[in-house]
Each structure stands twice: as C-alpha cells, then as structure tokens.
C-alpha cells in the first residue's frame, strides 16, 4: 500500500470495529478526500459515519469535540495543516484541556488528521509544518508517520487512544519515499519494505520511536519526510549515522533518544518546520540536559528557515541533502 491507502485502511478497520468511529471534514464524504484518504468510506459505512462538512475549521473541530463528549470517536480531517489555525482555539483551549479542566468528567477522544509538510511546490499555504505549535500545548498528542506501515498502525492507535491526537501526514511521501533529490524520478512505496501493510487491525504504539538505521558516528533525530531524506543522504555520504524516527513527538520516546546520543556522542536534529521555537529546539534542550557529558560536539539543527514557505525557492529552503551534508561535516569534523 502507499501511505494514503494505509491511512484509508486504518479508518476502514476502525470504522468496521467500532460503530462510534466517524470521519468528517471538507470533501471527505462522497468525493473521498482531496488526497483520496477517505475514498470509499461513505459508500461502505453511510453518510452518518463519513460525511462532508461546511468549510469552517472551527466548526469541524468544535463539532468533533461535542461528538466526542457524546461518546463518539471522531476522526476529523483538516484539508491542509496550513488551515488548522482557525481551529486553534478549539484544539488548544478545548480538546487539549477538556479532560484536565473537567477532572475527566468529559474527554475528547478525537484524532485530527491533516496533511502537512513541503516539497511539493505548495507555496506558503500548502507546505507548512505547524507541529511545534501543538507540541507546546499540554494535553494533546502529536504523531507523524514516515511509512505506510507506521501510518496505519499509528493511526489505529491514535483513534483508539482516549486523548486528543494530532495526526500529521507528510503529504510529500503519500505516494512514495522521498530522498530529497527533487530532480530525480520519484519512487513509490511498492519497492519499500514498509510499503507492506497488513489488511487487518494492528497497532504501532504511540510514544515509541523507531531506529531506522543503527549507527555509531552520530544520532540523527527526525520524523516524517525527513526520515527518508536523511537515510538517503547518509548512504550517499557514507556516514555511519543512527537514524531515529521519533514517530510521536508528544509524548516523546526519551529513552530511545538518550540511549542513542549517549552511544554516538553527537546529535543532529532535522525537521522541515521553521527553526525558532520549533520542536528541534525542545529536542536539542532535552539532549543537552540529559546527555551533556556524552556530547563530543554541539548539537546541530537542520530545519526550514525562519521565513514563510517560499514557492519558487523551495529547494533552497527545504532541508535537503546539501544542507544535511554541511551540518554533518560540521558535526563530524573532529
């Protein structure tokens, strides 16, 4: 399966298992979503389980919270993560705090799916990576898959989770892994081992990172599209890096991070999101606090620049092989 099919399969599995699971959002019903992630669900489960909504992100999330309070398990979609901001108040002030403020009298077991990230000439409002806004909010979990296998398993775990989960889908790798070389032909998931996706129910537990590649020279912390860009880049450069795909940003798999950095003594953090106040800053602080005496070089971050996401200059902005290579040179120079 590609990642879209895996995500579709996760919702299909959960809708079949749990009559309280409903999917909703702009264009998700009859049409099956602008990325086809909800294709076939309305035909299979009916209009009260998979339905189109008005174009109002406040409403989509607010209504989902109300449905959750009733006892449903809504999976609302925000068409692009760039358009999640109108719903910020409902997510930050309501979904994230409902359990806490009501002492678990009410909960918000909702999973907000949203395509995110760049590398597709999406310009300013179809490329953003807003995860850092949400990792800063207590009470919400943030999950980002990097393969079809993980996407399905993590999405099932997210839907089954009783806490609100923001599930960000790296749209650049919906159809195939991306090595950062935009000028080469794109690959598809059928050639990748994680493109093997079981048909039925399985979970990839939230809060657990994956070691994508074991190595000794440096730890690279990354997630989403960047996992593949990093993997391809270090193969090209011949660097014996350990690649950790965080998969869940909150709660973070701190043990995996600590163990790896203590072993390698060096740490590179890579994300597409802008640098200042990004999740990389939190990762860097945690590594510095917990692995200080094991560090042999300053922690490096390769991130999007602190600018809005540019259209024509995308490949200068994107943290691709050139930028990762330069950072590794710096990190490994002595």
């Amino acid at each position: 399966m590609n990642m879209i099919q895996a995500i579709n399969s996760a919702m299909d599995v959960m809708m079949a298992r749990d009559p309280n699971v409903v999917v909703m959002g702009e264009d998700v019903g009859y049409f099956g979503g602008v990325f086809r992630a909800t294709a076939g669900l309305q035909a299979k489960y009916g209009k009260t389980r998979a339905f189109d909504t008005p174009i109002t992100e406040i409403g989509i999330i607010g209504v989902a919270i109300g449905m959750g309070a009733y006892g449903l398990r809504p999976v609302p979609e925000i068409q692009f993560a760039d358009y999640i901001y109108p719903a910020l108040d409902q997510l930050v002030s309501e979904a994230a705090r409902l359990r806490y403020r009501s002492a678990a009298d009410f909960i918000a077991p909702i999973t907000v799916r949203s395509p995110y990230g760049g590398g597709i000439f999406g310009g300013q409002t179809h490329s953003q990576s807003p995860e850092g806004i949400f990792t800063h909010v207590s009470g919400i979990k943030t999950v980002i898959p990097s393969t079809p296998y993980d996407a399905k398993g993590l999405l099932i775990a997210a839907i089954e989770d009783n806490d609100p989960v923001l599930f960000l889908e790296p749209k650049r790798i919906y159809n195939g892994p991306f090595d950062g070389h935009y000028d080469r032909p794109s690959k598809n998931w059928s050639a990748h081992p994680a493109g093997e996706v079981p048909e039925g129910h399985y979970r990839v537990e939230l809060g657990k990172a994956a070691t994508v590649r074991a190595g000794e020279a440096v730890t690279i912390l990354c997630y989403g599209t960047m996992v593949h860009v990093v993997a391809s880049t270090i193969e090209e450069l011949g660097v014996d890096a350990e690649i950790i795909d965080l998969r869940t940003l909150v709660p973070l798999d701190i043990e995996a991070v600590e163990q790896s950095v203590r072993k390698t003594g060096r740490c590179l953090i890579v994300h597409e999101a802008t640098r200042t106040g990004g999740f990389g800053a939190e990762l860097s602080a945690l590594v510095q606090e917990r692995c200080f005496y094991h560090l042999e070089a300053p922690i490096e971050r390769v991130t999007g620049f602190d600018t809005p996401y540019p259209h024509s200059l995308e490949w200068a902005y994107f943290p691709g092989p050139v930028r990762i290579g330069e950072a590794l040179k710096k990190l490994l120079k002595d």
């Binding site: 109300g66 309070a69 108040d89 002030s93 309501e94 403020r101 009410f106």
Partner: peptide, 27 residues
C-alpha cells in the same frame, strides 16, 4: 462540570461550547 447532571464543562473561552453543542446534538 457535571456530566451526570447534563451540564458540560464550562470553558473560559467564549462561544467554544456552541459548535460543541451542535456536535453533541449531531451525534
């Protein structure tokens, strides 16, 4: 907040309960 009395948790953020009520009714 009093679920067993049909009273949803009050938020300091104004009007957020409006779409939530609609969602509950839709459910």
């Amino acid at each position: 907040s009093a679920k067993d009395h049909g009273f949803f948790s009050i938020s300091g953020n104004l009007a957020t309960q409006y779409p939530q009520a609609v969602g509950w009714a839709m459910a």
